[in-house]
Amino acid sequence: MASLPWSSGSSGSGRRARLVDVTLALLTAVAIGAGPAAMGAPLSWNGTFDLGAALGALLLVRRRHPLLVLVLSAAVLIGWQSTGLFEGGWIWPLTAALFTAALGHPGRAAGIGALVLLYGLSPQGLGGPETLARGGVELLWLALVLAAANAWRQYGRWRAEHHARLVQLEQTRLAEQRLRISREVHDVVAHTLAVVGVHLNVAVEALDDSPEEARAALRTAIAARTQAMSELKAFVGELREAPQQGLESVADLVEQARAAGLEVRHDLEGDSGAVPAAQALTAYRVVQEAVVNTLRHSDAGRLTIRVRVRSRELEVTVTDDGRPGTFSEGHGLTGMRERVTVLGGTLRVGAGAETGTEAGTDTGFVVQAVLPLTAA
Rank of each mutant, 00 (worst) to 15 (best):
A2V: 11
S3F: 06
L4A: 14
G14T: 06
A17Y: 02
R18H: 06
D21N: 11
T23F: 09
A31P: 05
P36T: 09
P36I: 02
A38N: 01
G40S: 10
F49L: 15
L51W: 06
A54F: 07
A54C: 08
L60F: 07
V61E: 04
V61L: 10
V69W: 03
V69K: 08
I78W: 14
Q81H: 12
Q81F: 00
W92C: 04
A96F: 13
G104L: 04
G107R: 14
R108V: 13
A109S: 11
G113H: 05
G113E: 03
A114C: 13
L115D: 04
L115A: 15
L118H: 04
P123V: 08
G127W: 04
E130K: 00
E130H: 00
E130T: 08
G136Y: 02
L140E: 07
L146K: 00
L146R: 00
N150G: 10
N150Y: 03
R153V: 07
G156K: 05
W158M: 11
A164T: 05
Q171G: 12
Q171R: 14
T172Y: 00
R173V: 09
R178I: 08
R180I: 01
S182L: 11
S182V: 12
R183L: 14
V189Y: 06
H191T: 11
T192Q: 12
V204E: 14
E205T: 10
D208H: 13
D209N: 12
D209P: 04
A217I: 03
L218T: 12
I222M: 12
A228T: 05
S230F: 07
L232N: 08
K233G: 15
F235S: 14
G237C: 11
E238D: 13
E241C: 03
E241D: 13
E241S: 12
G246E: 09
L247I: 13
E248F: 10
A251M: 08
A257V: 02
A260C: 15
L262T: 00
E263I: 02
V264H: 00
V264E: 03
E269Y: 05
A277R: 10
Q279F: 04
Y284C: 05
V286Y: 01
T294Q: 08
R296F: 02
D299H: 03
A300C: 11
L303C: 05
L303M: 03
R310V: 02
L314P: 10
E315T: 12
V316N: 08
T317P: 02
D320R: 04
D321K: 05
S328N: 03
G330C: 08
G330H: 04
H331G: 01
L333A: 15
T334F: 07
E338Y: 05
V342K: 09
L343T: 10
G344Y: 09
R348M: 06
V349Q: 02
A353C: 06
T357D: 15
T361G: 15
T363V: 13
V367M: 07
A369M: 05
V370Y: 06
V370C: 06
